[in-house]
Design a protein around this nucleic acid. Structure first.
Lengths: 329, 329
DNA sequence: GACCCTAGCTAAACCGGTTTATCTCCGGCT
DNA sequence: AGCCGGAGATAAACCGGTTTAGCTAGGGTC
């Protein structure tokens, strides 16, 4: 009825608890004959070690953590994270402890708690801030962590990232090659590191580029677009920081009678079903593979590997119907 | 440096471990003065009980589990699950253990393992099959579980569900009221219980309705639509089992020169950004609230409440531009 | 005064593993 | 023969809690 414990195995095999532990974990200290007998008994009884008990004696918790800071309702539209999680899972044999909280303070408290409680072996850090306190916290806690998506190097932490700077440059180059001159950008949250990276890439490749802040929601994308198109000299191309805002922007353009792409070119950051359907030119990256890469990195760090930075492949621009030659003056 | 344990609290407060345990858990056996002193010390030292250790002495694991059976890559497009998870989180103070597997066998094995390992206090069961083995398994394991989205009553399990039958009927009524006669349906996976429910509702309210099987992907939606529109007497309205297939169907119609809604009405099951943007008439339900409700139910069951069935509010039809009067014959 | 009961606390067992100290036995070396 | 070393196993401690058995002091009852 009850699940067998190590004690049951020991009794059935006629050895001590300690010997069973050694045998099951493939460590030296028991003879081959004893080991095989123990393994035999364990498999017959359907033995499963309890992670709980194992974690108690300071071994592995067999789980990694991910905390997302979001207003819960907003989460559902962000396909990005779900793709990422799916990709992470594909490379992990352990479970993922996921929690959504609404503030950065809660996030930090949760990481500390999970680690103190031996609940996780390591964590993913996403949505890196410009001067992120987590970068210092993790090493001081001794909690293995991998920064996901924060470009560049972060203190003592491993990092998996894509080059947002080069990607933004490639987008702008694409638009410039089409003859665009007045290029605008609808940015994401200014507190996030990758927003800053994209900002600086944008600023250095576009002269007099206009940047309007958004927050990844459709409403903010629409508002920003209305603002841009209402200017005295409206831009001939707009680059959005995510798919939802871009789609909303395309809709606003349609409502205002601004033709896409003949009068306005639109490019979205991050491809998705939404972009595919809206036939929007989009910067596409394989988020699933990205998650998988992050998981591999975390597994390595937990295994004791020294933290390294892994650069993901450069996002690729998928040109669809929303970008074309700039209109004649 | 290290997190304080119960032993540290005991030493600092000058009492025994046992007394501390009693004091912290609000149980009788200690005087009020001792209790307050212990609580004081604990808060000063920043004490956090280790769930791991607590779970070991057969108490709570402070986590619930959710296993999704999917080809990992397909997951990212299913906003539904992410919404659901976000909603669940909003009503749970404990963490969610999430794992994506690729077969039903793995799913079952995982539930058993998690329970055996004291990793979870309860689990959510989604994507209920027609004769789902999990319905019998959970009570036999003694693992608290809540069926999410499987209409009706399931053995000894609690269930949170929306009435797919009535919802389908309301969709068909809407189309009939618009004069539609040849109504088709692009269904989801036939093995799922809700597909069967919708099938039977559809069959009983539509005479000679055509049903084509799909698998929730854009490709299958496009294929099914092409098949339907290629018939000798093509339908004047199509109901799709999810948003992705509906959008793909709308696109196929556009490619074939079939005007929506004047020649063909389209209704999607499950609203999303995709439908909003595509201006598709959709059956909308508050998936976030649904997840929250499911979480409340699970928390109750874990707390020892006898399992009850909770019916969610009926999904509401949001009429947009994709459905209109049937074309004249 | 003898007896019992209870509140308040402690010591110790227990949960299911890992790890360390210890013990025994056997073979090889000088 | 005497000594050493290592392999193979065990008992026991430990992780951080919960829980139970037992002890003590004080008050009430007859």
């Amino acid at each position: 009825m009850k699940r067998p414990t190590i004690k049951d195995i020991a009794a059935a095999a006629g050895v001590s608890k300690g010997a069973v532990s050694l045998a099951l974990n493939g460590r030296s200290g028991v003879s081959e004959s004893t080991r095989s007998r123990v393994l035999e008994v364990a498999s017959v009884l359907g033995y499963r070690p309890s992670v709980t008990a194992r974690a108690l004696s300071s071994a592995s918790a067999d789980a990694v953590g991910l905390v997302l800071v979001r207003p819960p309702r907003a989460l559902g539209d962000e396909a990005f994270f779900f793709q990422l999680i799916a990709g992470m899972q594909s490379e992990m044999s352990c479970a993922l402890l996921l929690q959504v909280v609404s503030s950065r303070e809660e996030e930090i408290a949760l990481y500390q708690r999970w680690w103190a409680e031996h609940r996780v072996d390591g964590v993913f850090l996403v949505d890196l801030l410009v001067a992120d306190p987590r970068v210092e916290l993790m090493p001081s806690l001794g909690l293995p962590a991998v920064v996901v998506g924060g470009a560049g190097h972060h203190g003592a932490l491993a990092s998996v990232w894509a080059d947002d700077y080069a990607a933004m440059t490639s987008v702008v180059e694409h638009l410039k090659a089409l003859g665009h001159w007045r290029i605008a950008r609808v940015a994401g949250l200014a507190s996030l590191l990758h927003t800053v990276r994209r900002d600086s890439a944008f600023a250095s490749s576009v002269v007099d580029g206009v940047v309007v802040a958004g927050d990844y929601t459709a409403e903010s994308g629409a508002r920003a677009t209305r603002e841009l198109l209402g200017m005295a000299e409206p831009p001939t191309a707009i680059v959005y920081d995510n798919d939802v805002m871009a789609v909303a922007g395309a809709e606003v353009a349609a409502d205002l009678g601004v033709a896409v792409p003949s009068e306005l070119s639109i490019v979205a950051w991050d491809d998705s079903v939404l972009c595919q359907h809206g036939r929007l030119t989009a910067l596409s990256r394989d988020t699933f593979a990205f998650g998988a890469r992050a998981a591999r990195a975390l597994v390595a760090v937990i295994g004791g590997a020294s933290p390294t930075d892994v650069e993901d492949v450069l996002p690729e621009l998928v040109v669809r119907g929303s970008s074309g030659p700039a209109p004649a003056e």
